[in-house]
Amino acid sequence: MDFNLSEEQTLIRDSIARFVSENYAFDQRNAVVAMEHGFSAEHWQQFAELGWLSIPFAEEHGGFGGGPVDTMVIMQEFGRGLVAEPYLATVMLFGGLLQAGASEQVRENYIPQIIAGELQGAFAYLERQSRYEMTDVVTRADKDGEQWVLNGEKTVVLNGGAADKFIVLARNAGEQSEEAGLTLFLVDASSTGVQRTVYRMTDGQEAATLSFKDVQVEAVIGAVGDGYALMTPIVDDARLAICANALGAMEALNEKTLEYCKTREQFGVAIGSFQALQHRMVDMFGACENVKSLLLRAVCAAQDDDVDARRSLLALKVMAGRAGRLIGGEAIQLHGGMGMTDELSIGFFVKRLMIINSLFGDADYHQQLFAALVNTPASSAAA
C-alpha cells in the first residue's frame, strides 16, 4: 500500500507547516485565542486565499474535490500548531452537511461563501441529556402551515458564537432516542427566537448553548426524517479529522519533551540520559506511532470505501483517546512543575487532546461501539 503523498498534498502540508511556524508561535497562539470568538478573522481570510477552505468541497461548487488523505494532511498540521480557527466546525461539519444534503440553490448560495471565508457555520446536535448518543434528541420540529418551526436547546455547539448559520438536528417524529424521525434544518443565527450563551472550553476554543423558541427554519437539509443517515458519514469524516489533529498534537508533545530532556540538567547531566526516563519517552513514541499507523489504515479504508472502514475508524478513536492521555500525562511529568504552568505550551496541547477525546464520544464509548460492531454476526452486519 502506497502511503506517499501526492505533489499537491505535499504542497498543502508544507504551506500549512510554514503558516504555523510563522503565525503560531506560543505567544502568537495565545494572542489569537484571546481574540473575540477565539480565532483570528485575518487568519481565516488567509486560509481562504491559500485555498485551504475549498479542499473538501466538490469542484462544481468551486472546491478542490479533496478526500480523506487531504483532510488528514490539513488537520495533522493544524494539530502540531494548536491552530484555533474553526476548520472542523465550519468546513468539515457545517459545509460537509450542506454539500451532502442541501438543495442545489442552498449549496450555490452558501458553499462559495464558505470557500471565500465569508460565512461561519456550526452543527448543533448535542443536548444536555444526550451524553454521546447523537440520536437522543428532544428538540422538536413541527409544521406551522408550510413552515417548519423549532423549539428546544442544543449544547456544546462548536463555533456557536461566531456562526452566521446553524444546521440543527431536531426530532419531527418518533421517540426520544430513535434514529428515525430526525431531520436537519438550516437556521439563520439572527432569526427571532434564537438565543445563544457563549463560553470557552478547556482548550480555549469557543462553544455555545443555543435555545430555540418558535424559530422558523430557512431550509430542510436532506429529506425529512433522514437526518441520522445523512449526518452519519459526515460525523465519521469529522472523527477521522480530529484523530489526525490529535496525532499532530501528540507529535508536537513528543518533540518538545525530547528536546526538554536533552537540555534540562539534573545532578550535572541531561535528564534524558536517565534510563528510566528514556523508557518513558519510548512509550510515548510507541503510542504516537500506533495512532499514526491506525490513522493511515483508517484513511485508506475510508478513501477506498472498504467494508472495514468503520471498524478501523472506531478503533482509531479508541487508540487516539488513550494514547493522548498517556502522552499528555508523561509530557507533563517529564517537564516537572513547569509542565503544569501556562508559561509552556505543554498544558495547552494536553487540554486540546482532552477535548478531542470527548468529541463525538470518548475512548470508552468508542470501545463499546467497536465491541458491538465486531460481535455482530456477519449476516446481521451485511443486512
Rank of each mutant, 00 (worst) to 15 (best):
F166P: 00
T155Q: 13
K213M: 13
V194Y: 05
F185N: 11
F166V: 06
G174W: 04
T183W: 04
E179V: 12
I221W: 01
L186V: 14
A180C: 03
T202A: 10
V168M: 09
T197I: 12
L158D: 09
E153K: 15
L186H: 07
Q216H: 11
T209R: 07
K213T: 15
E175R: 12
Q216S: 12
G181H: 02
G222P: 06
A189S: 14
I167D: 03
Y228E: 06
A207P: 00
E206K: 06
T209M: 05
E206P: 01
Q176F: 13
G181M: 06
D214L: 00
Y199C: 00
E179D: 13
A189G: 01
V156R: 03
S177W: 02
V157Q: 04
S190Q: 15
E175W: 05
R200G: 10
D188T: 11
S190W: 00
T183V: 04
A173C: 07
E178F: 08
A163V: 08
G161K: 04
D164G: 14
E206I: 13
G222F: 07
V194I: 14
I167C: 08
L186W: 06
A223C: 05
A163H: 11
Q195A: 14
Q216K: 13
G152I: 02
V198P: 01
L182H: 09
T183H: 06
D226T: 03
V194E: 01
V215H: 08
R200Y: 04
G152P: 04
V215K: 02
K165N: 09
L186N: 11
A219D: 15
G193P: 01
F166H: 07
A170P: 00
Q176T: 13
Y199V: 01
E218C: 12
F166T: 06
L169F: 12
K213C: 10
G193N: 00
D214P: 00
A170L: 01
F166N: 05
L169M: 15
R196L: 03
G181N: 05
S211G: 05
A219I: 02
A180R: 14
F212D: 04
K154A: 00
D164T: 09
G181E: 08
L169S: 10
G227D: 11
D203R: 11
D188C: 11
E178I: 08
S211K: 14
E153Y: 00
A162Q: 12
L182E: 00
V224N: 05
T197W: 01
E179A: 14
A163G: 03
L184H: 05
T197M: 09
T202N: 12
Q205H: 11
S177L: 07
V198S: 07
A163Y: 12
G152N: 10
Q195I: 09
L158H: 09
I221V: 14
D226F: 04
A180K: 13
Q216M: 04
V215R: 00
T202M: 10
A189H: 03
K165R: 15
E178K: 09
V224G: 07
I221L: 03
A189C: 08
D226Y: 11
L158N: 06
